[in-house]
């Protein structure tokens, strides 16, 4: 480490008149660089592998509706590990965290409204069959039309 510190100081004296008007000041001698310890990188990696195994494992069981939430929760924990450690967000400027987390709000807005609306008009939907004549379950258009009409009057 001492080796690198020496380099850092050399570089500082080389570069012109460094002023710290922008951003936070750092206590350590790396300037703005913040190398991750190797043990941390490795433990995050193994945690991710473990969670991948876990999600494959839980997929063996039929949990019904809970299944998608389980896998989403595990995926989110994994994503959190990647963002916080690999992407270094834990030590990053707060602004960058706000930027990326803020984007998730807009994703939620987009998906939320669109899905809420789709759920709302779902009952009005008429599904079309693309089963061709040679397939089982095929109905000719006249039968389909008659059924649709019957369904419409039934409502």
């Amino acid at each position: 480490m001492a080796h690198t510190n020496a380099h850092a100081e050399n570089a500082h004296t080389d570069s012109h008149d460094v002023h710290h008007g922008h951003g936070s000041s750092h206590g350590d001698h790396h300037g703005f660089s913040h190398p991750m310890p190797i043990w941390m990188l490795l433990s995050v990696f193994f945690a991710l592998l473990f969670l991948t195994g876990l999600t494959v494992f839980q997929a063996q069981f039929d949990l019904g509706n809970a299944e998608i939430w389980m896998s989403l929760i595990i995926a989110t924990i994994k994503a959190g590990l990647v963002i916080l450690f690999f992407m270094h967000l834990l030590w990053d400027k707060p602004l960058n965290a706000i930027v990326i987390l803020g984007s998730l709000i807009f994703v939620a807005l987009f998906l939320g409204f669109t899905l809420m609306d789709a759920e709302g008009y779902r009952e009005k939907l008429i599904f079309k069959s693309t089963i061709t004549e040679s397939q089982p379950g095929y109905k000719d258009p006249a039968t389909l039309a008659a059924e649709e009409a019957a369904a419409a009057t039934g409502k």
Binding site: F113, M116, D117, E119, G120, Y121, K124
Partner: peptide
């Protein structure tokens, strides 16, 4: 053809 609720909210 959007849902009535969504239309009111928007």
């Amino acid at each position: 053809g959007m849902a009535d609720v969504t239309a009111v909210v928007f």
